[in-house]
């Protein structure tokens, strides 16, 4: 477990690049994740942001929460816009018309990444642009009112996968985006969560140093959509990790590292019981999910152990 027994302001920059005055819900995990990401990125970046909560809460004309150059265009094209920015910087640098070593960053939610922006993401990763793609995963379309996405976990009740008399809510398993990113053969893939801020910021720093595409998948707790109290955001993120539901790992080339490992995972009920979206689940369904979580986690653990063995 990450140690937080330190004097934080000495370890992170005091500078905020995602300014207060944004209109995110109280206790928004995604806003916190964006704030931490921006701290780690620093000033020499350009952000392309997909349509979604973070875009809406940060940029009602004529005001902006962004202290760094930032562009929003559409929902599904963020990776393509980032590709263009990266290519534009390259040629302008070559011609002596651009003088910063700027890192290009694409930001999108899980809908903008796993569903509607999937093709553009795959294209940009395959083409090998030097950029970081960050998916802020709050596990549904929160901006439009909590509709299911392909990143919504099995059993979660959303407004378009509602739990009902004959339904348990979402009946499909969460799409494994980090694995899909890995399949593109890109240099760096990582998962992170705002509840482990130093791990998150380290990974951003690492991605900045990578030459080529990096993909970072950040679990971002949404108190509104997950139906939990606004002060439980950090705790919920921690429980997602401690139960093995959202493992924190990174993949460098084909080398897997489980950054936070637990000798014994907590039962998933600990995580589920905090949240209204899972409240309807039966014992049977929970144990079905528990089995799947355990299997996936041990597979990941084996994969990471194999690296160590090879070493």
């Amino acid at each position: 477990m990450e140690s937080l027994a330190i004097y934080v302001p000495r370890l992170v920059t005091i500078k905020e690049y995602f300014a207060p005055g944004h209109r995110a819900c109280m206790g928004c995990g995604e806003a916190l994740a964006v704030r931490l990401v921006c701290k780690a990125l620093g000033r020499n970046i350009i952000i392309a942001n997909a349509t979604g909560c973070m875009e809406i809460v940060s940029s009602p004309l004529p005001s902006t929460s962004w202290e760094v150059p930032w562009i929003h265009t559409l929902f599904e094209n963020t990776a393509a816009v980032a590709s263009g920015i990266e290519a534009g910087i390259k040629i302008l640098t070559r011609k002596g018309k651009y003088n910063n070593k700027t890192k290009v960053v694409a930001m999108a939610g899980d809908g903008g990444t796993a569903d509607i922006g999937f093709q553009a993401l795959s294209g940009a990763l395959e083409r090998g642009h030097d950029f970081i793609y960050i998916c802020f995963d709050n596990e549904a379309y929160m901006n439009t009112g909590i509709q299911r996405s392909s990143s919504t976990p099995f059993g979660a009740s959303t407004t378009t996968s509602p739990a009902g008399k004959v339904s348990i809510g979402q009946t499909t398993w969460k799409k494994d985006l980090p694995a899909i990113a890995v399949a593109h053969g890109i240099p760096y893939v990582a998962t992170a969560c705002h509840s482990y801020p130093f791990d998150l910021m380290n990974k951003i720093n690492k991605a900045v140093e990578v030459n080529g595409p990096s993909y970072i998948h950040i679990l971002s707790v949404c108190p509104t959509g997950w139906r939990l109290a606004s002060d439980l955001t950090i705790r919920a993120g921690r429980l997602a990790v401690e139960t093995g539901i959202f493992p924190i790992y990174e993949v460098e080339g084909d080398r897997y590292t489980l950054n936070l490992d637990f000798p014994k995972l907590r039962p998933i009920e600990d995580y589920f019981k905090l949240q209204g979206r899972f409240r309807h689940l039966s014992k049977e369904t929970i144990s079905q999910i528990q089995e799947r979580v355990a299997a996936k986690y041990s597979k990941l653990k084996e994969r990471a152990a194999r690296n160590n063995y090879q070493q």
Binding site: N77, A80, V81, A82, Y98, A120
Partner: peptide
């Protein structure tokens, strides 16, 4: 779709 989107990016940096 990505062609025009990438053009937004290249044009926006100048």
């Amino acid at each position: 779709h990505s062609a025009m989107s990438a053009c937004l990016g290249t044009s926006a940096v100048g």
